[in-house]
């Protein structure tokens, strides 16, 4: 199925979870805020939040540079 990550389309397996996507991108789930179709996904629910075709994810990395 096709999903959008930060505006760019990407193919992923059906039934992929938010956690699966983060792992496929090599992103530590503790270092990002994930927004799915404009709603924030609780970090505890990354593994149980299954995506569907056309979902839009925004991934925002925690940064602290000054």
């Amino acid at each position: 199925m096709k999903i959008f990550i930060n505006g760019e389309s990407r193919e992923c397996a059906a039934q992929s979870s938010v956690l699966d996507i983060l792992q496929s991108l090599g992103i530590n789930p503790k270092t990002v805020v994930v927004q799915r179709n404009e709603d924030i996904v609780d970090r505890e629910s990354f593994g149980s939040t299954l995506l569907i075709d056309g979902d839009a994810l925004e991934l925002v990395r925690f940064v602290g540079g000054g």
Partner: peptide, 21 residues
């Protein structure tokens, strides 16, 4: 609320352009 804990791996030195900061 946004950052419940210190993000793992954050380092004092990081890539930076002055115009971005």
């Amino acid at each position: 609320c946004i950052y419940p804990e210190i993000p793992p791996g954050w380092k004092r030195e990081f890539p930076v352009f002055g115009a971005v900061s």
